[in-house]
Design a protein around this nucleic acid. Structure first.
Lengths: 117, 117
DNA sequence: CCAACCTTGACACGACCGTGGTAAGGTCGG
DNA sequence: CCGACCTTACCACGGTCGTGTCAAGGTTGG
């Protein structure tokens, strides 16, 4: 069966089986399937799952944020529209408080604030 | 008083006063203040608020998505970390179902799905 | 001075995120 | 064939997003 089943993959990646299905739904890591429908995680998927976990933890980023970045990367029209809107702030750069959106973003999980304390 | 108060700005931008305060919290549009603390929206802010509304509506993007993109733009370490993780998918590009994350993203507000129907 | 407007803070509410669980049923390998 | 594992589909729950509303108090401008 060339690869790990979902519970085995959960064991070696640190995710729960539930989360592996959820992550697949988000489109970020999609394993192959057997003829009967079982998910089969290969080495590439396992590596991806591990680095994904690291990414989310070390930057305090949400799964949905990564999914949105994927959407951005795949839709250049959207990407340039947002970047253009953001760059218009540069009109008055001295007014931008860099701690502002930062605090806003961090409120999502206040882990960073607690860590900093 | 050189500029519009919050309710006047709400009137000309289509946002509610409540949302203007919320948007300011997110760091996306921050008006000047009078000595007494009143928000004063100038022409630049009004324009920004209008284009922001257009951006969100025409691409079905959330306020938090734009805020996150701002964080990305301001933190190149984070940006390259995510982009690198995403680009690892390109290893097996034929396996990526482009409708996957799309449906995931769209479930946020099913407006696009309904529009498409 | 005063009416009209603004401020912050709080409560509320539906929708969605991330996560766990459980139930009913199908697949795997020996 | 059968026990162990997997599938999807649901319910639940605390937390966040986007939004409205209300209360208590300060500002503005004539």
């Amino acid at each position: 069966m060339q690869g790990l089943t979902i519970n085995e993959a959960a064991g070696t990646t640190g995710w729960s089986a539930r989360m592996l299905r959820y992550i697949e739904q988000s489109g970020l890591v999609s394993p192959e399937r057997t003829a009967g429908g079982y998910r089969i995680y290969g080495a590439a998927e396992l590596q991806r799952l591990r680095t994904l976990k690291e990414l989310l933890e070390s930057f305090d980023v949400a799964l949905s944020d990564v999914a949105f970045t994927a959407r951005l990367a795949a839709d250049p029209r959207l990407q340039s529209a947002i970047e253009q809107w953001l760059s218009a702030t540069a009109e008055r750069p001295e007014d931008v408080d860099p701690g502002d959106w930062l605090r806003f973003e961090q409120r999502k999980h206040e882990r960073l604030l607690l860590d900093a304390a």
